[in-house]
Design a protein around this nucleic acid. Structure first.
Lengths: 174, 174
DNA sequence: TAATCTTTTTGATTTAAATCAAAAGAAATA
DNA sequence: TATTTCTTTTGATTTAAATCAAAAAGATTA
């Protein structure tokens, strides 16, 4: 990464803090920012039949946004909230596009990190098809073992597409 | 797209044909090619407990490969086979990397099309969590309605993570 | 510290879908 | 065209997980 790019990024990112339970992004708005987590956990979720369904969790060292809203500049169904008090650096979509336009290496970085993210999504799809609740949870533990016990049981259950009672019983049997 | 890029691409892609049921990519090998479908349907699948589990289907106008194998140059669990007699244009990973190195616009094209693909995967995850078999199939019909009846029932069932008997009954009730 | 609210666990019952089994219908092959 | 093979449908039974209900445990606030 070139010096001028580093400088340009640091000029554009801004530090922000969110309290536990606070809404980071509201689905009523277009998501114009991407958040890099310094400390804490953020969650993406959407509403189905009035209930919150967790989509994914991000912790230290990861970027989070509402992907389609951010990339396609339109509204989407996803909310983002803070599971713990969380410190982030945020980058506006316009600044990101500026960086894409001025630094070809940014395009490349983006392509490569998309590839990784892509892999995660495929893993996720595979795990959702494992039929039993136990297998789903096992898979969750593998991918999220570091944050497993920092996330409330009910949120994990909706992420896995199983009821909280079932998840509680699955955990009890380990 | 610049003329020289167009020319460079057409010099590098090669026409190939596969018979119905033929293996396009074997999971024992690294996937070094990406296939653009001109006519027909290709399927990605993997084996679980000796059974084929369909991962996704691609038809006319779409690109298919074994993503992690192709992008990270390592073996992965996915096979690709032909559901119908299929005509494709194929592009080697080295040629693609050459194009990335020589045409910044290729990086951009890749980034944008990844964004779309990303959206599809998120849709997919959402649909897999819809609890009932009927809802899963409804969602499949929306995204794959044009190829729905060109794909055998059993393959759709494994794609959705439900049994073929259940899918047959779901269909009967429509 | 008590009181309230939230989250998790435990128990009983119901239900959707899996499994087992076999017949019917299509497609491929001789 | 008949025969074999593969795919889909239908029926009976079982099972995993949802739902309903309530208690226990853990947080948060007064």
């Amino acid at each position: 990464m070139s010096e001028s790019l580093k400088e340009d990024i640091s000029k554009r990112i801004r530090f922000e803090q969110f309290k536990k339970g606070e809404l980071v992004h509201n689905a009523d708005l277009i998501c114009t920012k991407s958040y890099f987590i310094q400390d804490g956990i953020l969650r993406t979720y959407f509403l189905k039949d009035g209930k919150e369904i967790s989509e994914y969790f991000c912790s230290e060292g990861e970027w989070i946004n509402s992907p389609r809203s951010f990339m396609q500049r339109k509204k989407d169904i996803y909310y983002i909230d803070a599971i713990e008090n969380t410190d982030v650096y945020c980058l506006d979509v316009n600044d990101l596009l500026f960086l894409f336009d001025h630094y070809p290496e940014m395009e490349r970085y983006s392509r490569l990190s998309m590839g990784t993210l892509f892999g995660h999504l495929i893993e996720r799809i595979t795990s959702l098809r494992f039929t039993t609740a136990r297998e789903k949870y096992e898979h969750f533990c593998q991918t999220y073992h570091d944050v497993n016990h920092r996330i409330p049981l009910g949120m994990i259950a909706s992420y896995l597409g199983i009821s909280q009672e079932t998840l509680s019983r699955v955990r009890a049997k380990r």
